[in-house]
Structures are given as structure tokens and as C-alpha cells.
Amino acid sequence: MPAEPMIVFEGVHKRFGDSVVLSDLDLAVDPGEHVTLIGPSGSGKTTILRLLMCLERVDAGTIRVGGRYLSHMHRRGELVPADEKHSRDVRRRIGMVFQQFNLFPNMSVLGNLIEAPTRVLGLSRAEATERAAELLDMVGLAEKIDEHPARLSGGQQQRVAIARALAMRPDVLLLDEITSALDPELVAGVLRLLRRIGDTTDITILCVTHEIGFARDFSDRVLMLDGGRVIEDGPPDQLLREPRQPRTKEFLAAVLEGR
């Protein structure tokens, strides 16, 4: 294992008004590792992803990505809260896929896939288009390149969203309950795609999901969150089959019963 993990949270606190969402959270994810976050709603899973995306700011503690501070920056030898430019610069290495896909409805599938590579990475239109075509081929939607998102099924939209995130060549991919909004028959296709991405790339993946079966065979490690802390951390076979914490046991029972 390399010395520096890809993602590090140290003593992170996050509050929304009076409610504490993350409390003194420590977390480390190694490069290439696939980590799944589970826990009841409000346990802070999604907040962890949103902090990494800089959609929220930490109240205390620090976050590092790829050895660089994301939440903070150095100014005259001191560590100060990051400004937007710094955050955007570090965040460029992170891609995210959302529960509601969030494709841009005013652009074609191709437009969605080349907007950021041309505007942010500085690729030429031809380069970006070539890469978009490759990615669409990989997600099995090559023939939909000129289609508009509204004309695609939920599962297809989510596969385009995954391709859009990968088009930025991220080191880290964040997946926020990406199958929760899909009809059950479309879930399998998306999960199969993720397994393939997991097997064929060395992208670090941090994933929030309620798909326990998927978490079991996709993850290297599962973290159980409750009350803004990691209460259990272990390999999926152990944590999901023989949890040590009573809260984990309860949560898994509730999730499995709900299906």
C-alpha cells in the first residue's frame, strides 16, 4: 500500500443548524480502493460525498485528496479555508454520479459528455468527441450519442451520467445512491457496468448504496455510519454477514426486510 491514501478525512465536523451530521470523523481510502458507505438516513453518508464535491464546507477538521488539501489551502505558511479556485482545482480529480442522474436536458448525450472535457480539460472538440464515443460504447449506448436525455430510460440516463463522470478521467469516483431512482429491472445493468469499471480501471470509488448484495461483491471495505461517525469498518464478508455492532445488525436487518 502506498504511503498516502487517496482520500483522508481528519476530525471532520459538519453541522446543519443544530443538528450534527458528522462528528469528529476520521476516514482514509487508499488509491484504487472501493469503499461502500452504509447507514441509516441522516447518518452522514451523503454529506461525506457532498463535502468531497465542495457542495458543503467543513465546520472543523480537514479533508485531503490525492495528498492535497481540499478543504484548506496554504497561504503564507498557514492552513486557511480553501477559496473556490483552490477547491475547484483539487476537485477536478473527483467525479460524481447522482441519484437523479442530473444530465443536462438542454444538451444531447454528446453535449453532456464533451462540455466539461472541452471547457475544463481543454480537449479539442474532436478529441472529446472521440472519447465520448468510446465511453458510450463502453456503457452500451453508442447509438444514443445524438439523443436527448429526456428520450432515454432512467437506466440509460444513469449510464450516460457515469460516462460523463468518466470523461473527466477522475482519480476518484463518488456514487450517491445511483440505483435508488431506477426501476428494479434497470438496476442490474447499471451495477454490472460499475463492476466492469471497478475491474478494468484503478479509479478509487466511494459509494453510498442500499444495494447490500452489490456492496458485498463490489467493495473492498464497508463502513457503517451512525450519528455522524464510523461505527464499524471491515471487509464486506465480515461486516455484512457477521456485523459486530448491534446497530449494524439492526440496520442490515431493516434494509433486508424492506426489500
Binding site: 464535491m53 442530473n102 462540455e115 475544463v120
Partner: peptide
């Protein structure tokens, strides 16, 4: 315009000008 559109634009690190001109205003 749904918040998810702003978030997706942020997740792609789009510069502010593109967030407005390419994503938000056309919708």
C-alpha cells in the same frame, strides 16, 4: 432550474460562465 443541475455542473468543475451560459440559462 433544479438544484441537481447546479450540482452536476459543479461536479464537472465547469467554470461559472459555463454554468450560466451552457446549463442554467438555456433551461
Amino acid at each position: 432550474v433544479p438544484p441537481g443541475q447546479w450540482e452536476a455542473a459543479a461536479a464537472l468543475s465547469l467554470p461559472r460562465s459555463r454554468v450560466w451560459l451552457a446549463v442554467v440559462l438555456p433551461q
